[in-house]
Computed example of a mutant assay.
Amino acid sequence: MVSEGNAQPTRCGFAGDEAPGAPRVYVLPAPVAPAGAPPEAARRLARQHARAALRSLLAHDLGCAPEAIDLSDTRGQPVRAAGHERIGLSISHEHALSLLALCPDGAVGVDVVRVPAASDADELRRAAHLFLEPNMAAALDQEAHEATFSIAFAAAWAAHEARLKCIGQPLVEWSSALSARLAGVRSAAVELPPWAAADHVAAVAWRAAGLGG
Rank of each mutant, 00 (worst) to 15 (best):
V27E: 00
S72W: 01
S98D: 04
R80Q: 12
P34H: 08
A37I: 02
T74G: 03
G36P: 03
G16I: 10
D111E: 12
V32T: 02
D70Y: 05
A81R: 07
R43Y: 05
E94I: 06
L54V: 08
P104Q: 12
A19E: 15
P31A: 03
E94N: 14
A30W: 15
D17V: 09
A22G: 06
H84D: 01
H84P: 05
R43H: 08
R43K: 09
L89H: 11
A101K: 12
A41N: 09
A35H: 03
A42V: 05
H95F: 05
A68C: 04
A65V: 01
A96G: 15
R24W: 05
S92F: 13
R51N: 04
G16K: 06
A65Y: 00
P20T: 09
A19M: 14
L89Q: 13
F14S: 11
P29Q: 04
R44A: 13
I69Y: 13
L54P: 08
L100G: 03
R80L: 13
G76N: 08
S98P: 07
H95A: 15
R86A: 15
G21K: 07
A107L: 13
S90K: 02
G109A: 12
P78D: 09
L58F: 08
D111C: 05
S56V: 15
E94D: 13
R51H: 05
G13C: 12
P78S: 10
A53E: 06
D111W: 14
C64V: 07
A22D: 12
D61S: 12
V108Q: 06
D111G: 02
G13L: 07
Q77N: 07
E94L: 10
V79I: 14
G21L: 10
E94F: 12
L54R: 08
P31R: 05
E40A: 13
G16D: 10
A22M: 10
A46W: 15
L99Y: 09
